[in-house]
């Protein structure tokens, strides 16, 4: 069983505010799910070695130019904006 403190630590990393009740339920659910993952320890190892290349066999980074009119539409979805810019609370 993972501890309540552990659940709170993960929630903080995940930027989730959880109620006391949610923390208790999460403790129970996460414990049984993580226990289930132990199954993977039995999976054969030697043939399973994968290279870093396999794990990121993706594309090269490239810029794809978007359509100009899309920008305005995206800006409309900002919860808080000023002059077409996203407004964010001061961080410092």
């Amino acid at each position: 069983m993972i501890s309540k403190e552990e659940v709170k630590r993960i929630a903080a990393l995940a930027r989730l505010e959880l109620s006391e009740k949610e923390i208790e339920k999460m403790q129970k659910d996460l414990s049984s799910i993580l226990d289930y993952f132990d199954l993977l320890k039995k999976a054969p190892k030697e043939t399973a070695e994968i290279s870093a290349k396999d794990m990121s066999s993706l594309r090269k980074d490239e810029a794809v130019n978007g359509e100009i009119d899309k920008t305005g539409k995206l800006a409309k979805a900002f919860p808080d904006e000023k002059d077409g810019y996203i407004k964010v609370k001061a961080i410092l």
């Binding site: 993960i10 995940a14 930027r15 989730l16 959880l18 949610e22 999460m26 996460l30 799910i33 961080i91």
Partner: peptide, 24 residues
Amino acid sequence: KLLDVYLKTRGRGFGAEVKRRIMI
């Protein structure tokens, strides 16, 4: 604070299964 915006938005906006998977 900015962090509170994150925590509250995600805490209230997401349902139980989504939170569970984000946590896992």
